[in-house]
């Protein structure tokens, strides 16, 4: 990484940490919501993470479509990075959701629409990463993952519609006063920064790895050409 890039990266992570600290302090000090108690504060983490799972999934879709159109390995790296971040966000989403369900309604898991939706989404992108590791040839792997990424994202509305049919035992609407809206907005900032930053960081690592590979292959071939 060049020096200026390193400075930018450091500044970026510092900003992320600072906003995260601010968000946590705001959440701790915020008044407790009447109907649900302290655990409601998990919501501040849960909602931004949910939104960003979609954002990352959208990035996988865009990367897949880009690869199919242009066959450039950089799109594939973007798709890979975005898929990993989607899975990370999805895991956090499932854990916070499950935790909330446990505290609020006494069960770790219930087949309610939202939880099932999160689980299915998680499975989709976990499968994508599994596929990734299973195809040996790099071009083929990129192609397959691009197609999967596109189809998976198009599948998301179907998942949503299908889980709407499940019985929703627990109504999950929360009324937010203006203060709490501010806290929620404050949480959006670090989560957004984290998502985008992690995608960018993984992308950088993957591209660095790929270019090192290419250099190695080129030097081997060059060595072979001049015995």
């Amino acid at each position: 990484m060049t020096r200026s890039r390193r400075h930018v990266a450091r500044g970026f992570w510092a900003l992320t940490l600072a906003s995260l600290a601010l968000a946590i302090s705001l959440a701790v000090r915020a008044p407790t919501e009447v109907s649900m108690g302290t655990v409601q504060k998990v919501f501040y983490l849960h909602l931004p993470v949910a939104i960003h799972t979609f954002v990352a999934a959208l990035a996988v879709f865009v990367a897949g479509a880009g690869y199919l159109a242009m066959r450039d390995a950089r799109w594939d790296a973007l798709g890979h990075a975005a898929a990993e971040v989607t899975l990370l966000n999805g895991t956090v989403l499932l854990l916070t959701g499950s935790f909330w369900a446990r505290i609020a309604w006494g069960q770790w898991w219930t087949w309610s629409p939202r939880l099932t939706f999160s689980l299915l989404l998680w499975l989709l992108y976990a499968a994508l990463l599994v596929v990734r590791s299973m195809v040996p040839s790099p071009e083929r792997r990129a192609l397959v993952c691009a197609i999967y990424g596109v189809v998976a994202f198009l599948d998301v509305p179907l998942v949503y519609l299908s889980v709407k049919l499940l019985p929703d035992i627990h109504p999950e609407s929360i009324q937010l006063t203006n203060e709490l809206r501010v806290v929620l907005a404050a949480w959006f900032v670090p989560i957004t920064l984290l998502t985008l930053g992690l995608i960018a960081a993984r992308y950088g690592v993957l591209r660095a790895g790929a270019s090192a590979e290419a250099d190695r292959a080129a030097s081997v071939a060059a060595a072979g050409a001049h015995p």
Partner: peptide, 20 residues
């Protein structure tokens, strides 16, 4: 080897169809 994976790969995409 990877062809054996077909059910694992496609099933998550098709689970909503199964649900419906």
């Amino acid at each position: 080897a990877s062809s054996r994976l077909l059910p694992a790969v496609v099933a998550p995409l098709l689970l909503p169809v199964v649900l419906l």
